[in-house]
């Protein structure tokens, strides 16, 4: 049953990967990669149960954190990548 759940998560990861490859805008790709990261967290947790090694949950926890920070960083990078100045009036926003 864990294997079935892992298989389902892998299928969804494949779908996210297709979306990441097809685009069309860079933001579609970021969205897909963000979902891919969440699915990776789920997959790590399910795999930990599958192999009866609950230590994997620590890795899942760290991966969730890295996924969030990575998404924010790439979003910020893309937002001002075209030579745009950061908007002054929104300087404090994420």
């Amino acid at each position: 049953m864990y294997a079935a759940a892992a298989a389902a998560v892998l299928i969804v990861m494949l779908m996210a990967l297709i979306r990441a490859l097809r685009g069309p805008t860079v933001f579609d790709r970021i969205l897909a990669v963000n979902s891919f990261g969440t699915l990776t967290v789920v997959l790590i947790a399910v795999y930990g149960f599958l192999t009866d090694r609950p230590d994997f949950l620590d890795i899942a926890l760290v991966y969730a954190l890295i996924n969030f920070i990575g998404t924010i960083a790439v979003t910020k990078y893309v937002q001002f990548a075209n030579g745009d100045e950061p908007p002054v009036e929104h300087g404090e926003d994420v």
């Binding site: 933001f27 963000n34 924010i72 979003t75 910020k76 937002q79 745009d84 994420v94």
Partner: peptide, 13 residues
């Protein structure tokens, strides 16, 4: 937070 940042970045672009 990540979704909101992404939406804002897309609108900004």
């Amino acid at each position: 937070t990540a979704t909101h940042a992404l939406a804002r970045a897309a609108l900004h672009a």
